[in-house]
């Protein structure tokens, strides 16, 4: 158990030692199978989206993206992600800390409850807010009297998105922090560090990649969520349509190329976050060396 305090996890890419890897043939075969699987399941659909997006040429592509409704949908989507992701990140870190650093009764139940939104059908995750805040819902009459709009307005969309992306950060951190145990933090505490300092100086460096992954996934899903948001949005053009809903509208208007063009924009947003991630990654590893 030596060497823990010096943090062996800092270096990301370890040099591959020959006796710790497989024969070259096996390696190539494994890489080949992995790529073939990824190709059939993930890359091909992406390629289909891009092919369809450019079927009517570059100009049609640009005009689909610069459309006024597309722009307002983009704004709403970004706003939603901007609220949902930080809140869920905060929650994820808190939950992971509580679950992995302490033992208490009902922990399994708590972890399962955190996972639960994954298992809830997107249809249902929209429905529950309708049941709660809708005109026929439990709080509906009160909200209506006070002229507060939750569903069929931005708060409803944000809530549904938060629900759907709820577990991502926590889920990413829990196995990681579980595997790391509590030794590092305890060492820090025994050396006199307290509270937030322990977290920022000891825990955070250890979990930063997991945290970043979690946030990226949370963000990607927040921007791409369709089912739940569809239930609470009301589909008012230029007002409560997010990008995924705008895509559906375009598709239903037989504007297939435009629909896929907007979809490719969402893919682009995902790629941008990934680029940001790798820039961060390389900068951090440079600082460490």
């Amino acid at each position: 158990m030596g060497g823990i305090v010096t943090n062996p996890r800092a270096g990301k890419s370890k040099p591959i030692r020959p006796h710790l890897t497989e024969p070259r043939v096996v390696r190539y075969v494994l890489i080949g199978i992995a790529l073939l699987f990824l190709g059939l399941i993930v890359i091909l659909p992406m390629a289909a989206v891009i092919a369809e997006a450019f079927r009517k040429g570059w100009d049609a592509y640009v005009s689909a993206l610069s459309n006024k409704d597309a722009m307002s949908a983009l704004k709403l989507t970004l706003l939603t992600a901007l609220i949902a992701v930080p809140l869920n990140t905060l929650f994820g870190v808190a939950a992971a800390w509580a679950v992995t650093k302490f033992s208490f009764r009902g922990k399994n139940l708590l972890v399962t409850l955190i996972d639960l939104p994954f298992a809830v059908s997107p249809v249902v995750s929209g429905l529950i807010y309708v049941l709660l805040f809708g005109a026929q819902g439990f709080l509906g009459p009160w909200l209506s009297d006070h002229n507060i709009h939750i569903i069929f307005a931005t708060p409803g969309i944000v809530l549904a998105t938060m629900f759907v992306t709820f577990p991502f950060v926590a889920r990413e951190l829990i196995p990681l922090m579980e595997a790391q145990g509590v030794q590092d933090e305890e060492a820090a505490v025994s050396l006199g560090a307290r509270g937030w300092r322990v977290f920022f100086k000891v825990t955070l460096p250890n979990i930063k990649w997991g945290l970043l992954y979690g946030m990226i996934l949370c963000n990607a899903r927040a921007m791409g969520e369709f089912g739940a948001v569809s239930v609470v949005s009301g589909h008012i053009r230029g007002e409560t349509n997010t990008l995924p809903l705008h895509i559906e509208i375009l598709y239903n208007e037989y504007q297939f190329s435009a629909a896929f063009a907007v979809a490719s924009m969402l893919m682009l947003l995902a790629v941008v976050t990934l680029i940001v991630k790798s820039i961060l990654e390389s900068r951090m590893s440079r600082e460490e060396h």
């Binding site: 706003l79 609220i83 809140l87 002229n147 507060i148 709009h149 939750i150 307005a153 931005t154 708060p155 944000v158 809530l159 007002e239």
Partner: peptide
């Protein structure tokens, strides 16, 4: 407050 802030903001939006 974040939640309610975005709620009230939306009321002005239309």
């Amino acid at each position: 407050s974040v939640l309610s802030a975005c709620g009230s903001k939306n009321n002005n939006e239309p």
